[in-house]
Amino acid sequence: MNKRIAGLVLAGALALSPLAASVADAESSYVTVKSGQTLSGIASAHRTTYQHLASINHISNPSRIYPGERIYLTAGSAPAPAKPKPKPTSSTSSGTRIVNQAAKYIGTPYVWGGSSTKGMDCSGLTYATFKALGKSLPRVASSQYHASKKVSSPQKGDLVFVHDGSGSVYHVAIYVNSTTWLESEHPGAGVNYYHPWSKSVYYGRIAV
């Protein structure tokens, strides 16, 4: 009787429980890289190719594997590559920031050559607006035009450059929409929203 029981115990000791078997299967599905090992060496030891292991493990450079890294041996055992996190987007567009900043100067009187709240001309408004947003612009309208990226379809916050018909820029405003510019228009008017008053215009964009 004792021998029979002993035999049963011995037989049971040789058999793996379902839980132990599942752990063993999981561990046999990958290799933990040790110092000095190469992907081709691991592949050769498991009768496969390094190209296959690189593919299922999403390894872009097969010559670079690191100690402690898991190399999965079958496609079904390898985890899916992590999805890249979407880049955070600003809740306020660049154009809206430009218009909102320029609107802070509404009511400032027109002063030729000025660029402060005491008084500003057309390019003084754009100069002060972009400076407040961390962007340095040339001081005069024609130079601001040359510093901008030329666009044919304006968006909110773009710059409107009025020219004399021969291409010479003499005024700049901020585009709000198809019926509105924000600008320091002329003496006696100052900074405010105005209806577009010229069709001889170029459009430029300054990123902020």
Rank of each mutant, 00 (worst) to 15 (best):
I98V: 15
G119P: 02
A141R: 02
Y66C: 02
K83R: 14
T126F: 01
I71Y: 00
I59S: 03
S40C: 02
S90I: 06
Q101D: 12
P84V: 08
L39Q: 00
G114C: 10
N61C: 05
K156D: 08
G76H: 13
T126Q: 03
K118P: 02
L73H: 09
Y50L: 12
T117W: 13
G124Y: 02
Y110F: 14
T108H: 04
A43N: 02
R47V: 13
G113M: 08
G114H: 11
I98T: 09
G113H: 09
S77Q: 07
Y127T: 01
V111I: 14
S143M: 08
I56N: 01
H58C: 02
S148R: 00
A54D: 09
Q144K: 01
H46D: 07
T38A: 04
K118G: 15
P84C: 07
Y72I: 01
G76T: 13
L125P: 07
P84H: 06
A103H: 12
T96A: 15
S91I: 10
T96M: 12
S55C: 07
T92D: 11
I106S: 13
H52N: 13
A147D: 04
S115T: 14
S123V: 02
P67Q: 05
S115A: 15
A147M: 03
Y110C: 02
S93H: 12
S90H: 12
K150H: 15
K85L: 14
S77E: 08
S153W: 08
T49Y: 09
P109Y: 07
Y105G: 06
S123M: 03
A128I: 04
N100I: 11
P154C: 07
V99A: 06
A147R: 04
R64M: 14
H58K: 12
